[in-house]
Amino acid sequence: MRILCISDTSVDDSRPCKGLAKAAAEGAISITMSSAEGVVETLRRSRYDLAVIQQASPDTRLLRHIRNSRQPTPILIIARQTTPATIADVLSIGADDCVPATVDPIELLARLRAIIRRVSGHDSLTLHIGRLTVNVDRREAHVDDRLLPLTPREYDLVELLALRKSQALSKEAVLDSLYAGQEEPHGKVIDVMVCNIRKKMRALGIATPFTTLWGIGYRLNEDAFAPVGSKMVGADRSMSRVAKETCIPIMPGGINIMPAAGSSEGL
C-alpha cells in the first residue's frame, strides 16, 4: 500500500503522525512525505493508493485544490481537532474519511484498507472474482470451495492482484506493496512466486490465473475464473493463452507504473 502523506506545517513538520507511523510498522505500508505545495503534480507523476492529509483541524482548501485538479486518488484526513461539522464539511467536498489524530493504529490501518477496497470496486472483506474468493479478514483464498495452500507472501500477491484486477502491475510495484518499509529482495522473487501460485491454481482447475505482459508486469486474468459452464465459448482462445504462459522472468527496462522520475521518496 503506497501512501502519500501531506503534512500541514502547523502540525508536526515533515513526519507522519504517531498513529500512521505505527500503522505503517504493523502493516505493509510505504509512506512518502510531501508538503502541500506541489502535491497535485506529485499525484500526477506517481501512482499512490491513497493520500493522507495531516492537519491541526480539517481545512477544506487543500482538499478542494486536489479535487478541482481532477485527481481521483482517495483521500483520508487525520486532524488533531475535529467536530461533527468539520468532518461533515470535508466528507461533502470529497474526502473519503476523516479521523482524529488519536485514532488507534489498528483502526486506522483497517480504514485505509477499507477505502482502497471500495475504490477498487469491492464493498466487503471478501473479494469475489468468479470462482476465486479472497477473504481479506482471514487472509485466505479459495477456488470454488477449495482452499488455496498459499504462503503469507503468496497470499499478499493474490490479494493485491485481486484488488487491482483491472490493472497490470510491474514487479517494482508488487515489491513496493509486498515489502513496504522492509528490505526488498531481488525482483526475480516475484517471478518465482507467480510461478508457484500458478501451479497451485492449476491443480484446482484454473489454467491461466495471471496474464503476463512482457516487459510490463502481471495482471489477474478474470476470464480464467469464470464459472466452468461459461468457458465453453471461446475455448480455443483460452487454450492459446495457456500455451503462452511460462515462468520466464520479466526482463528489466519495461514500463514502470510506480513513481515516475523526479518524484521524491521517503519514509
Rank of each mutant, 00 (worst) to 15 (best):
P152N: 07
L169I: 12
L163Y: 00
L157F: 06
L150N: 09
D145E: 14
L163A: 02
H142L: 15
R153C: 08
L148W: 03
Y155F: 15
D145S: 10
Q167D: 15
P149G: 08
R164E: 14
H142P: 01
E154A: 11
A141E: 04
R164L: 08
T151Q: 12
R139A: 11
L148P: 05
R139Q: 14
D144K: 04
A162C: 12
E154M: 06
T151S: 15
D144Q: 10
E154V: 07
R146A: 15
R164W: 06
L148K: 00
L150R: 05
S166K: 07
K165N: 14
E154R: 04
D144N: 11
R153L: 14
Y155L: 09
R164D: 14
V158N: 05
L169V: 09
L169T: 11
V143Q: 00
L161F: 08
P149L: 12
D145Q: 09
E154F: 01
D145V: 03
A162I: 04
L163C: 03
L160Q: 07
L148A: 09
R139K: 12
P149Q: 13
E159S: 09
R164K: 13
Y155N: 08
D144W: 02
H142E: 13
A162K: 00
D144E: 14
Y155V: 08
D144I: 02
L147G: 03
E154C: 07
R164A: 11
L163M: 10
L163G: 04
P149K: 13
L150F: 02
L161E: 10
L163V: 06
L157K: 02
R138H: 10
R153K: 13
E140I: 11
L160V: 12
L161R: 03
R138S: 11
E140L: 11
H142S: 13
E159V: 09
L169A: 05
P149A: 15
L148M: 08
S166E: 11
Y155G: 05
H142Q: 14
P152K: 03
L147P: 00
P152I: 09
L148G: 02
R164S: 09
L163D: 01
L160Y: 11
K165T: 13
L169C: 05
A168S: 11
E159N: 11
Y155T: 07
P149E: 15
V158A: 06
R146I: 14
R138N: 09
S166W: 08
A141T: 02
R164N: 15
P152S: 12
D145G: 03
L147C: 01
L157W: 04
L148H: 00
D156H: 10
R139W: 00
V143C: 11
V143E: 01
E140T: 09
V158Q: 05
R146E: 15
A141D: 04
L161Q: 03
E140F: 02
Y155K: 02
L157N: 00
V158G: 04
E154I: 03
P149F: 06
T151H: 11
D145T: 06
L148N: 06
R138G: 02
V143D: 04
S166P: 00
V143S: 01
A141Q: 00
R164P: 01
V158H: 03
A168G: 04
Y155P: 02
V158W: 07
A141W: 02
L157I: 12
L161N: 01
L150T: 10
L160A: 05
A162Y: 03
V143N: 03
K165S: 14
D156L: 10
